[in-house]
């Protein structure tokens, strides 16, 4: 499960979309654009790294579900 310090992939993808939307705005500052661009590229690289390396974690519950109440 994700923690506050580590955004989920979905959150990072949303951040990337926000950055891209910023570049489509009319009020535009070149200095800010450079900062946003660098942040965007860094974010994209992080996402790619995560996608390439993340593995699923499988946990089989010890509970037996045979009897009524067995699932609790």
């Amino acid at each position: 499960m994700s923690t506050k310090s580590e955004p989920t992939l979905q959150e990072q993808l949303a951040q990337l979309d926000t950055l891209i939307a910023w570049f489509d705005r009319d009020d535009f500052d070149l200095d800010e654009a450079l900062q946003k661009f660098e942040a965007g590229v860094k974010l994209a690289e992080t996402i790619k790294d995560r996608l390439a390396t993340l593995e699923n974690k499988i946990t089989v519950l010890k509970e037996r579900f045979g009897q009524p109440g067995g699932g609790h």
Partner: peptide, 25 residues
């Protein structure tokens, strides 16, 4: 995909007890 935590409830999926087990899970 990656990074998914999969919590598995191991149940019978056929026979008389299956539906009870699935419901409990």
């Amino acid at each position: 995909w990656g990074g998914v935590e999969v919590v598995v409830a191991d149940v019978l999926v056929q026979g008389a007890e299956a539906s009870q087990q699935i419901m409990h899970a």
